[in-house]
Protein backbone atom coordinates (compact mmCIF):
# COMPACT_ATOMS: atom_id res chain seq x y z
CA UNK A 1 0.00 0.00 0.00
CA UNK A 2 1.45 3.35 -1.06
CA UNK A 3 1.29 5.89 1.77
CA UNK A 4 3.40 8.71 0.40
CA UNK A 5 4.43 9.34 -3.17
CA UNK A 6 6.94 12.05 -3.85
CA UNK A 7 7.97 13.26 -7.27
CA UNK A 8 10.56 15.90 -8.09
CA UNK A 9 10.15 17.47 -4.66
CA UNK A 10 12.27 20.56 -4.17
CA UNK A 11 12.30 23.02 -1.31
CA UNK A 12 14.38 26.15 -1.60
CA UNK A 13 15.00 28.59 1.27
CA UNK A 14 16.79 31.57 -0.21
CA UNK A 15 20.13 30.20 -1.39
CA UNK A 16 19.76 26.99 0.55
CA UNK A 17 18.11 23.97 -1.08
CA UNK A 18 16.66 21.87 1.75
CA UNK A 19 15.25 19.23 -0.63
CA UNK A 20 16.59 18.74 -4.11
CA UNK A 21 14.43 17.02 -6.72
CA UNK A 22 13.56 14.07 -4.51
CA UNK A 23 11.52 11.08 -5.77
CA UNK A 24 10.42 8.13 -3.69
CA UNK A 25 7.45 6.13 -2.48
CA UNK A 26 6.74 5.14 1.10
CA UNK A 27 4.87 1.91 1.71
CA UNK A 28 3.01 0.60 4.74
CA UNK A 29 4.69 -0.25 8.03
CA UNK A 30 7.42 1.63 9.83
CA UNK A 31 9.55 3.88 7.66
CA UNK A 32 12.83 5.42 8.71
CA UNK A 33 13.66 8.84 7.36
CA UNK A 34 17.41 8.88 7.81
CA UNK A 35 19.92 11.64 7.45
CA UNK A 36 22.35 13.84 9.33
CA UNK A 37 21.19 17.10 10.86
CA UNK A 38 20.24 19.45 8.04
CA UNK A 39 19.55 16.61 5.60
CA UNK A 40 15.99 17.82 5.06
CA UNK A 41 14.07 15.40 7.31
CA UNK A 42 12.03 17.95 9.24
CA UNK A 43 11.45 19.99 6.09
CA UNK A 44 10.07 16.88 4.42
CA UNK A 45 7.75 16.21 7.37
CA UNK A 46 6.42 19.75 7.34
CA UNK A 47 5.71 19.44 3.59
CA UNK A 48 4.03 16.06 4.11
CA UNK A 49 1.79 17.61 6.78
CA UNK A 50 0.81 20.41 4.41
CA UNK A 51 2.52 23.08 6.50
CA UNK A 52 4.95 24.17 3.83
CA UNK A 53 4.45 24.55 0.13
CA UNK A 54 7.23 22.91 -1.87
CA UNK A 55 9.08 25.06 -4.36
CA UNK A 56 8.66 22.37 -7.00
CA UNK A 57 7.36 18.86 -7.39
CA UNK A 58 4.39 16.94 -6.09
CA UNK A 59 3.63 14.96 -2.98
CA UNK A 60 0.61 12.87 -2.07
CA UNK A 61 0.06 11.56 1.43
CA UNK A 62 -2.68 8.96 1.93
CA UNK A 63 -3.80 9.88 -1.61
CA UNK A 64 -4.39 13.50 -0.50
CA UNK A 65 -2.60 16.62 -1.58
CA UNK A 66 -1.13 18.16 1.61
CA UNK A 67 -1.42 21.82 0.62
CA UNK A 68 -4.87 21.69 -0.96
CA UNK A 69 -6.41 19.14 1.44
CA UNK A 70 -4.28 19.92 4.50
CA UNK A 71 -7.00 20.02 7.15
CA UNK A 72 -8.53 16.74 5.92
CA UNK A 73 -5.10 15.12 5.78
CA UNK A 74 -4.16 16.29 9.26
CA UNK A 75 -7.28 14.71 10.70
CA UNK A 76 -5.88 11.35 9.48
CA UNK A 77 -2.26 11.81 10.43
CA UNK A 78 -0.43 12.80 13.60
CA UNK A 79 2.91 14.26 14.47
CA UNK A 80 5.32 13.94 17.36
CA UNK A 81 7.74 16.86 17.45
CA UNK A 82 11.47 16.59 17.98
CA UNK A 83 11.63 19.00 20.87
CA UNK A 84 11.10 17.57 24.31
CA UNK A 85 9.34 20.70 25.50
CA UNK A 86 5.70 20.12 26.37
CA UNK A 87 3.21 22.00 28.60
CA UNK A 88 4.81 21.45 31.98
CA UNK A 89 1.84 22.04 34.27
CA UNK A 90 -0.58 19.90 32.29
CA UNK A 91 -1.25 16.35 33.47
CA UNK A 92 -0.35 13.87 30.74
CA UNK A 93 -3.92 12.61 30.47
CA UNK A 94 -5.31 16.14 29.89
CA UNK A 95 -2.66 16.83 27.27
CA UNK A 96 -3.38 13.64 25.33
CA UNK A 97 -7.14 14.10 25.67
CA UNK A 98 -7.02 17.69 24.45
CA UNK A 99 -5.02 16.86 21.33
CA UNK A 100 -7.29 13.90 20.58
CA UNK A 101 -10.27 16.28 20.74
CA UNK A 102 -8.55 18.78 18.46
CA UNK A 103 -7.98 15.91 16.02
CA UNK A 104 -11.71 15.29 15.90
CA UNK A 105 -12.40 12.70 18.59
CA UNK A 106 -15.57 13.44 20.62
CA UNK A 107 -14.93 14.61 24.20
CA UNK A 108 -16.05 11.49 26.07
CA UNK A 109 -14.27 9.18 23.67
CA UNK A 110 -11.13 11.32 23.86
CA UNK A 111 -11.12 10.99 27.64
CA UNK A 112 -11.19 7.19 27.62
CA UNK A 113 -8.79 6.94 24.72
CA UNK A 114 -6.31 9.21 26.51
CA UNK A 115 -6.22 6.87 29.49
CA UNK A 116 -6.06 3.75 27.32
CA UNK A 117 -3.24 5.03 25.20
CA UNK A 118 -1.23 6.15 28.23
CA UNK A 119 -1.59 2.66 29.65
CA UNK A 120 -0.41 1.31 26.31
CA UNK A 121 2.79 3.36 26.38
CA UNK A 122 3.43 2.33 29.97
CA UNK A 123 2.32 5.51 31.71
CA UNK A 124 -0.98 4.26 33.10
CA UNK A 125 -0.03 4.86 36.70
CA UNK A 126 1.61 8.19 35.86
CA UNK A 127 -1.16 9.62 33.70
CA UNK A 128 -2.31 12.26 36.18
CA UNK A 129 1.21 13.56 36.76
CA UNK A 130 2.11 16.95 35.26
CA UNK A 131 4.32 16.47 32.24
CA UNK A 132 6.93 18.80 33.75
CA UNK A 133 7.67 16.25 36.47
CA UNK A 134 8.37 13.45 34.00
CA UNK A 135 11.70 12.12 32.77
CA UNK A 136 12.84 12.50 29.16
CA UNK A 137 11.86 8.91 28.44
CA UNK A 138 8.38 9.43 29.88
CA UNK A 139 7.96 12.63 27.84
CA UNK A 140 8.87 10.72 24.69
CA UNK A 141 6.15 8.22 25.58
CA UNK A 142 3.67 11.04 26.16
CA UNK A 143 4.55 12.41 22.71
CA UNK A 144 3.93 8.98 21.21
CA UNK A 145 0.66 8.68 23.15
CA UNK A 146 -0.69 12.01 21.90
CA UNK A 147 0.27 11.03 18.37
CA UNK A 148 -1.67 7.77 18.37
CA UNK A 149 -4.61 8.68 20.65
CA UNK A 150 -6.79 9.86 17.78
CA UNK A 151 -6.23 6.60 15.89
CA UNK A 152 -4.40 8.12 12.93
CA UNK A 153 -3.58 6.21 9.78
CA UNK A 154 -0.07 7.61 9.64
CA UNK A 155 2.18 9.11 12.32
CA UNK A 156 5.25 11.26 11.77
CA UNK A 157 7.68 11.08 14.68
CA UNK A 158 10.60 13.48 14.57
CA UNK A 159 13.61 11.96 16.37
CA UNK A 160 11.49 9.95 18.84
CA UNK A 161 14.53 8.65 20.71
CA UNK A 162 16.31 11.96 21.04
CA UNK A 163 17.90 12.33 24.47
CA UNK A 164 17.23 8.78 25.61
CA UNK A 165 19.70 6.36 27.13
CA UNK A 166 20.17 3.04 25.25
CA UNK A 167 17.72 1.14 27.42
CA UNK A 168 14.96 3.74 27.18
CA UNK A 169 15.68 4.05 23.45
CA UNK A 170 15.13 0.32 22.91
CA UNK A 171 11.88 0.48 24.88
CA UNK A 172 10.53 3.36 22.80
CA UNK A 173 11.58 1.66 19.55
CA UNK A 174 9.89 -1.56 20.62
CA UNK A 175 6.76 0.43 21.44
CA UNK A 176 6.77 2.08 18.02
CA UNK A 177 7.13 -1.31 16.34
CA UNK A 178 4.32 -2.69 18.51
CA UNK A 179 1.98 0.19 17.66
CA UNK A 180 2.57 -0.37 13.97
CA UNK A 181 2.26 -4.16 14.03
CA UNK A 182 -0.64 -4.54 16.46
CA UNK A 183 -2.77 -1.54 15.62
CA UNK A 184 -2.00 -1.06 11.95
CA UNK A 185 -0.81 2.52 12.35
CA UNK A 186 1.84 3.37 9.77
CA UNK A 187 4.73 5.30 11.22
CA UNK A 188 7.48 7.41 9.73
CA UNK A 189 10.32 8.18 12.12
CA UNK A 190 13.13 10.55 11.40
CA UNK A 191 16.49 9.64 12.82
CA UNK A 192 20.16 10.16 12.32
CA UNK A 193 20.96 6.79 13.90
CA UNK A 194 21.18 3.99 11.35
CA UNK A 195 21.09 1.18 13.86
CA UNK A 196 17.74 2.21 15.32
CA UNK A 197 16.23 2.45 11.86
CA UNK A 198 17.58 -0.99 10.98
CA UNK A 199 16.15 -2.30 14.23
CA UNK A 200 12.50 -1.48 13.62
CA UNK A 201 11.88 -0.17 10.10
CA UNK A 202 10.30 -1.89 7.13
CA UNK A 203 11.25 0.88 4.73
CA UNK A 204 13.90 3.55 4.60
CA UNK A 205 14.37 6.90 2.95
CA UNK A 206 17.90 8.21 3.24
CA UNK A 207 18.55 11.89 2.62
CA UNK A 208 21.85 13.68 2.46
CA UNK A 209 22.02 17.46 2.16
CA UNK A 210 18.54 17.49 0.63
CA UNK A 211 19.27 14.81 -1.94
CA UNK A 212 17.85 11.32 -1.95
CA UNK A 213 20.53 8.73 -1.30
CA UNK A 214 18.39 5.63 -1.31
CA UNK A 215 14.76 4.68 -0.64
CA UNK A 216 12.98 1.37 -0.56
CA UNK A 217 11.97 -1.62 1.48
CA UNK A 218 14.69 -2.55 3.91
CA UNK A 219 14.30 -6.29 3.25
CA UNK A 220 14.89 -5.82 -0.43
CA UNK A 221 17.79 -3.48 0.04
CA UNK A 222 19.63 -5.52 2.63
CA UNK A 223 18.33 -8.89 1.57
CA UNK A 224 20.69 -9.30 -1.37
CA UNK A 225 23.53 -11.52 -0.27
CA UNK A 226 26.96 -10.12 -0.88
CA UNK A 227 28.68 -13.43 -0.37
CA UNK A 228 29.34 -15.96 2.30
CA UNK A 229 31.09 -15.48 5.59
CA UNK A 230 32.94 -18.45 7.03
CA UNK A 231 34.23 -18.25 10.57
CA UNK A 232 36.71 -20.85 11.70
CA UNK A 233 37.95 -21.72 15.16
CA UNK A 234 41.73 -21.61 15.59
CA UNK A 235 43.28 -24.94 16.55
CA UNK A 236 46.51 -24.83 18.54
CA UNK A 237 48.13 -27.95 17.05
CA UNK A 238 47.08 -27.01 13.49
CA UNK A 239 48.04 -23.36 13.20
CA UNK A 240 48.00 -23.47 9.40
CA UNK A 241 44.46 -24.91 9.07
CA UNK A 242 42.76 -21.56 8.38
CA UNK A 243 45.40 -20.63 5.79
CA UNK A 244 44.89 -24.02 4.16
CA UNK A 245 41.12 -23.46 3.87
CA UNK A 246 41.71 -20.02 2.37
CA UNK A 247 44.22 -21.44 -0.12
CA UNK A 248 41.94 -24.28 -1.10
CA UNK A 249 38.99 -21.95 -1.76
CA UNK A 250 41.16 -19.64 -3.86
CA UNK A 251 42.39 -22.61 -5.88
CA UNK A 252 38.76 -23.54 -6.50
CA UNK A 253 38.34 -20.14 -8.17
CA UNK A 254 36.58 -18.21 -5.43
CA UNK A 255 37.45 -14.65 -4.40
CA UNK A 256 38.32 -14.78 -0.74
CA UNK A 257 38.99 -11.74 1.45
CA UNK A 258 40.59 -12.10 4.83
CA UNK A 259 42.00 -9.52 7.14
CA UNK A 260 45.37 -10.35 8.62
CA UNK A 261 45.15 -13.01 11.35
CA UNK A 262 41.38 -12.98 11.15
CA UNK A 263 39.48 -16.22 11.58
CA UNK A 264 36.76 -14.98 9.21
CA UNK A 265 36.90 -15.64 5.49
CA UNK A 266 34.67 -13.48 3.32
CA UNK A 267 33.84 -15.14 0.05
CA UNK A 268 32.71 -12.71 -2.63
CA UNK A 269 29.77 -14.18 -4.43
CA UNK A 270 28.87 -12.44 -7.66
CA UNK A 271 26.62 -15.22 -8.88
CA UNK A 272 24.96 -16.20 -5.59
CA UNK A 273 25.82 -19.76 -6.42
CA UNK A 274 28.78 -20.48 -4.17
CA UNK A 275 28.64 -24.23 -3.61
CA UNK A 276 28.61 -24.85 0.09
CA UNK A 277 30.11 -28.31 -0.52
CA UNK A 278 33.29 -26.57 -1.73
CA UNK A 279 33.59 -24.88 1.63
CA UNK A 280 32.72 -28.07 3.50
CA UNK A 281 35.40 -30.04 1.62
CA UNK A 282 38.02 -27.33 2.09
CA UNK A 283 37.39 -27.25 5.82
CA UNK A 284 37.44 -31.04 6.08
CA UNK A 285 40.63 -31.43 4.01
CA UNK A 286 42.47 -28.84 6.10
CA UNK A 287 41.29 -30.38 9.35
CA UNK A 288 39.91 -27.02 10.37
CA UNK A 289 37.07 -26.45 12.80
CA UNK A 290 34.02 -24.52 11.54
CA UNK A 291 32.29 -22.02 13.84
CA UNK A 292 29.69 -20.55 11.47
CA UNK A 293 28.85 -20.23 7.83
CA UNK A 294 26.27 -17.76 6.66
CA UNK A 295 25.23 -15.48 3.84
CA UNK A 296 26.54 -12.01 4.34
CA UNK A 297 23.83 -9.32 4.03
CA UNK A 298 24.45 -5.69 3.45
CA UNK A 299 23.96 -3.37 6.36
CA UNK A 300 22.22 -0.03 5.99
CA UNK A 301 25.65 1.54 6.25
CA UNK A 302 26.88 -0.60 3.31
CA UNK A 303 23.89 0.49 1.24
CA UNK A 304 24.45 4.16 1.96
CA UNK A 305 28.18 3.92 1.31
CA UNK A 306 27.62 2.00 -1.94
CA UNK A 307 24.97 4.44 -3.16
CA UNK A 308 27.03 7.48 -2.18
CA UNK A 309 30.11 6.17 -3.97
Amino acid sequence: MELITVSGLTMQFGNHRALDNVDFTVYSGVTGLVGANGAGKTTFMSIALGLRKPTQGTIRVLALEPIREGAELRSLVSYGPERNILPDEMPAVDFVKHLAEVRGIPRKEAKTRASDVLWLVGLGEERFRPIGTMSTGQRQRVKLAQAIAADPKLVFLDEPTDGLDPLARDEVLTLIRQVSEEYGIHIMISSHLLEEVEQICDNIVVLNAGKLVVAGQLDQLTGQSTGIEVELIPIDDRPDAINAVERSLREAGLTVNRKADSTVLRIQDETFETPSNLIRDAVADAGARLHRIQHRRRSLEDIILDTSS
Binding site: L51, A71, R74, Y79, R83, P87, R103, F156
Partner: peptide, 14 residues
Amino acid sequence: KNGMFSLYMSTPLT
Protein backbone atom coordinates in the same frame (compact mmCIF):
# COMPACT_ATOMS: atom_id res chain seq x y z
CA LYS B 1 7.45 28.19 24.33
CA ASN B 2 6.06 24.77 25.14
CA GLY B 3 5.79 23.46 21.59
CA MET B 4 2.00 23.40 21.51
CA PHE B 5 1.92 25.63 18.44
CA SER B 6 3.72 22.96 16.37
CA LEU B 7 1.39 20.33 17.69
CA TYR B 8 -1.70 22.41 16.93
CA MET B 9 -0.43 22.95 13.40
CA SER B 10 -0.18 19.20 12.92
CA THR B 11 -3.92 18.89 13.60
CA PRO B 12 -6.77 20.05 11.33
CA LEU B 13 -6.23 23.57 12.72
CA THR B 14 -4.62 26.10 10.39
